[in-house]
Lab assay of single mutants.
Amino acid sequence: QWIQSKREDIVNQMTEACLNQSLDALLSRDLIMKEDYELVSTKPTRTSKVRQLLDTTDIQGEEFAKVIVQKLKDNKQMGLQ
């Protein structure tokens, strides 16, 4: 999976804004449970939030991952090649 192969780059480069947009999009599509949303959003640092989101992606699967990839594209953060 692309996200896993780029995990380190995503953790380093995903902005707080992109992270929040991803969470909002996942929530609005019922792809993330409120508990998982809280787990991510209550982490103390941006990098720990991104790591938690990516860990959740492993469990949730492809549809979940597609939303995150789309948000990275929207925010022009796909220089993660």
Rank of each mutant, 00 (worst) to 15 (best):
Q1H: 07
W2F: 02
W2E: 06
W2N: 11
W2H: 03
W2G: 05
I3K: 00
I3S: 02
I3P: 11
Q4A: 13
Q4P: 00
S5P: 03
S5D: 15
R7T: 02
R7E: 07
E8Y: 01
E8R: 08
E8C: 00
E8K: 08
E8P: 05
E8L: 05
E8S: 09
D9G: 05
D9F: 06
D9V: 11
D9R: 05
D9M: 08
D9K: 06
D9S: 09
D9Q: 12
I10L: 09
I10Y: 01
I10D: 04
I10W: 00
I10M: 07
I10R: 06
V11W: 00
V11T: 11
N12Q: 10
N12H: 12
N12E: 15
N12A: 15
N12L: 13
N12P: 00
N12M: 14
Q13M: 08
Q13R: 05
Q13W: 01
Q13E: 13
M14T: 13
T15G: 04
E16V: 09
E16P: 05
E16N: 10
A17F: 01
A17C: 12
A17R: 12
A17D: 14
A17N: 11
A17T: 15
C18V: 14
C18S: 10
C18T: 15
C18D: 01
L19A: 06
L19I: 14
L19V: 10
L19H: 01
N20S: 13
N20G: 11
N20D: 08
N20W: 15
N20T: 09
Q21Y: 08
Q21M: 02
Q21N: 08
S22G: 05
S22M: 04
S22L: 13
S22I: 15
S22Q: 01
S22T: 15
L23S: 03
L23A: 07
D24N: 03
D24Q: 05
D24P: 03
D24A: 12
A25Q: 07
A25P: 02
A25N: 08
A25R: 04
A25S: 10
L26K: 07
L26A: 08
L26V: 03
L26E: 08
L26H: 09
L26W: 00
L27V: 13
L27D: 11
L27C: 03
L27G: 04
L27K: 13
S28P: 01
S28W: 05
S28H: 10
S28K: 15
R29G: 10
R29Q: 13
L31Q: 03
I32P: 06
I32L: 13
I32C: 03
M33K: 12
M33S: 15
M33V: 12
M33L: 14
M33A: 15
M33N: 12
K34R: 12
K34V: 10
K34P: 14
K34Q: 14
K34T: 05
E35R: 13
E35N: 05
E35W: 10
Y37I: 07
Y37G: 05
Y37C: 05
Y37K: 07
E38N: 06
E38Q: 11
E38I: 14
E38Y: 10
L39D: 11
L39C: 07
L39F: 07
V40G: 02
V40T: 00
S41Y: 12
S41T: 14
S41I: 15
T42E: 11
K43V: 08
K43F: 06
K43S: 06
P44F: 15
P44C: 06
T45E: 08
T45A: 06
T45I: 01
T45C: 09
R46W: 01
R46C: 09
R46E: 10
T47L: 08
T47W: 08
T47R: 14
T47Q: 12
S48G: 12
S48E: 15
S48K: 10
S48V: 05
S48T: 10
K49R: 09
K49W: 02
K49A: 04
V50Y: 02
V50I: 05
V50D: 06
V50F: 00
R51S: 11
R51Q: 13
R51F: 00
Q52P: 05
Q52E: 05
Q52F: 07
Q52A: 15
L53K: 08
L53E: 05
L53F: 01
L53H: 03
L54S: 03
L54T: 00
D55T: 08
D55I: 11
D55Y: 06
T56N: 04
T56S: 09
T56D: 01
T56F: 14
T57K: 14
T57M: 15
T57F: 07
T57R: 09
D58K: 10
D58S: 14
I59K: 15
I59G: 15
I59A: 00
I59Y: 08
Q60P: 09
G61T: 12
G61R: 11
G61M: 00
G61K: 14
E62A: 05
E62V: 01
E63S: 08
E63T: 08
E63Q: 06
F64S: 10
F64P: 10
F64L: 09
F64C: 15
A65K: 02
A65F: 00
A65W: 04
A65Y: 02
K66L: 05
K66V: 02
K66D: 07
K66F: 00
V67M: 03
V67I: 15
V67S: 00
V67H: 07
V67K: 04
V67Q: 04
V67T: 09
I68P: 06
I68C: 01
I68S: 06
I68V: 12
I68E: 11
V69H: 05
Q70D: 10
Q70I: 04
Q70S: 11
Q70M: 06
K71W: 00
L72R: 03
L72Q: 06
K73L: 13
K73H: 08
K73T: 14
K73G: 12
K73F: 04
K73Y: 13
D74K: 03
D74W: 06
D74R: 06
D74T: 09
D74L: 08
D74H: 14
N75Y: 09
N75F: 07
N75D: 13
N75R: 03
K76R: 11
K76E: 11
K76S: 14
Q77H: 12
G79R: 09
G79C: 13
G79V: 11
G79S: 13
L80S: 11
